[in-house]
Design a protein around this nucleic acid. Structure first.
Lengths: 335, 335
DNA sequence: CTGAAAGCGCTTACAG
DNA sequence: CTGAAAGCGCTTACAG
């Protein structure tokens, strides 16, 4: 069926080793032989089997990406960056969805390893540290995004300044005169949320403002982190604690759900209730009102993760410091 | 490094063939041997190399998915369906982004073939039919989504009733009393758009309403099909043809951009200008006003595409009829 | 500058 | 029920 090295060798009247040499651009070969072989390759449409090559080189030129939910705009926008970077370097990408389930996350990891991916980029949803470290040690290098693990020779880190972003958002809200500020979040558990909360608390405390537990709405583990959750959480906050005048959302989806809840309850945004999102997904500036949000450069995030992973694969060195990525408050109309 | 069949065989005191038999669940083996081998496999944490297996079986248990832009919610929501289905069947997924570029689309196809994927699901952005047929004939089976190709033994088709959806949307608008209806689209060229236009025209004609060329805004090939395009197109339509009172958008992103343009130009939606979207992406019901739109069940679309591809891979039969998927008008508030 | 041999980790006939 | 041999399509030392 497919044309192989042997076919080319036969047609060109050389050994397969010689063909292999021209395919891999190795130097020790005469101009004429190379030309002749190249011509045959072209004529036959020969393409080397990455499978066969991988079996001996132990490199497949593939990497894996594991996200919580590819349909969440945050992750799909990151994926676009990953995809572009990966292609620029001649790699291909396996994609896995963990559905926010720690077990599926681990399953995906081993499933990718079965295909001998060269490395994996993962957005862990949960505190899976022990499992991830075990995997990295015994299998492929990992790049972990937005989870602050202690240094590990086979784990690269790319970290957004989530805490700083949450701080700045609250600062902004305080500057606008808000004194009763809540937080709208999804499931508890993920460390990611911890960073939001830390920044949130610190900024409040710095202004001697109250950190009220009932104003911080975290959902059940399976409650999701989408618009539906934001809608429900905002309804709850608005009815139970009408004195709260502003909220920081865990992400833009939750912020959008909150905006909807406000509309239905007759609270104008931002006049009656101010909302700051997080992530700045593509649609954040399009909706009404356009979302004031903490921007994460998702495309860059994806690219950096790939760059770091590739460095880890190709460099003998093993002490790669975490990559810190900034975050930026984008002021639009919702707050 | 990794533990191999040979390691297991040695430890269990059997031949590698025997181990292979238990791994592949073949019958001809004694209970005791199987138990013993299983124990060793477990103890050693042996996982068969899919690479090595694939080299001989010619099946990798992987399929490819090629979309225009994974950051577009339509595609990322489809991808979620694809991912779920693929996992349920023990396959893994390669993801490629074509950036709406016919050449990249083809490159992706061959790049996937280099990894010996068992098949590919593709959302072609352009009229790439000849290339796709050539690929399918010489390489792996294809499932093509939403492009009506003539029957081909190695190409499966999954088709949404785009035309019917566009018709129903226009019918609805007419029923609401609109007589001057425009269309907001992106780049010209893709056949997909042709179907929208056909349904649009037919419904208008059926009601003896004018089909005005200047009210049908199609963008340049590289103008995109996102919110920015919808915003620009709506601005143009609203200023140049203020008598138009409603529009059908090519997708929800464009509809959202149009809603924004209306807001800025002081035209209330739906009272001053009605907008119907297409796709019903996750956020369509969340924004203000919630979008009236033609719903495509994206998750099901992804699942069906996988099912069909797997059927093609496992069945000797070769006449698979196109799968037709319905579409549904979801009435919310934008029209 | 070129080639013959061995081997990557498996499975597929074929024997016993 | 179990095993020895050949081979999938490549690359890696090693000779010449």
């Amino acid at each position: 069926m497919a044309v192989t090295l042997r076919d080319v060798a036969q047609q060109a009247g050389v050994s397969i080793k010689t063909v292999s040499r021209v395919v891999n651009n190795q130097a020790e070969i005469s101009k004429e032989t190379r030309q002749r072989v190249l011509a045959v390759i072209d004529r036959l449409g020969y393409r080397p089997s990455k499978l066969a090559r991988a079996l001996v080189t132990r490199r497949t030129d593939t990497i894996g990406l594991i996200v919580c939910d590819i349909a969440n705009p945050f992750f799909s926008e990151v994926a676009r960056g990953v995809l572009a970077a990966v292609r620029d370097h001649g790699y291909d990408l396996f994609l896995c969805n963990s559905d926010d389930d720690p077990q599926q996350e681990i399953n995906a990891l081993y499933s990718l390893d079965d295909h001998n991916v060269d490395g994996v980029i993962i957005f862990p949803s949960w505190e899976n540290r022990a499992n991830l470290e075990a995997f990295a040690s015994q299998h492929t290098p990992l790049v972990v995004v937005n989870r602050a693990f202690p240094p590990h020779p086979r784990i690269g880190l790319v970290l957004n300044d989530i805490r700083g972003g949450a701080q700045r958002a609250v600062e902004y809200l305080v500057g606008k005169g808000h004194r009763a500020i809540g937080m709208l979040a999804g499931r508890t558990g993920p460390r990611h949320l911890e960073e939001h909360l830390q920044g949130f608390r610190e900024a409040l405390l710095a202004h001697r403002l109250p950190v009220v537990g009932e104003w911080i709405l975290t959902g059940s583990p399976d409650g999701g982190i989408g618009a539906a959750r934001g809608y429900a959480a905002a309804q709850q906050l608005l009815t139970q604690h009408p004195q709260v005048t502003a909220a920081l959302a865990y992400n833009d989806l939750i912020a959008m759900g909150a905006v909807k809840a406000c509309a239905e309850m007759g609270r104008r945004v931002p006049d009656d209730f101010a909302i700051v999102g997080f992530d700045d997904i593509d649609l954040a500036g399009t909706i009404t009102p356009p979302l004031t949000t903490v921007r994460i450069d998702k495309y860059a995030l994806g690219q950096q993760a790939v760059t770091r992973l590739l460095e880890m694969l190709h460099s003998p060195q093993s002490d790669f410091p975490p990559i810190h990525l900034d975050v930026e408050l984008v002021v639009r109309r919702s707050a």
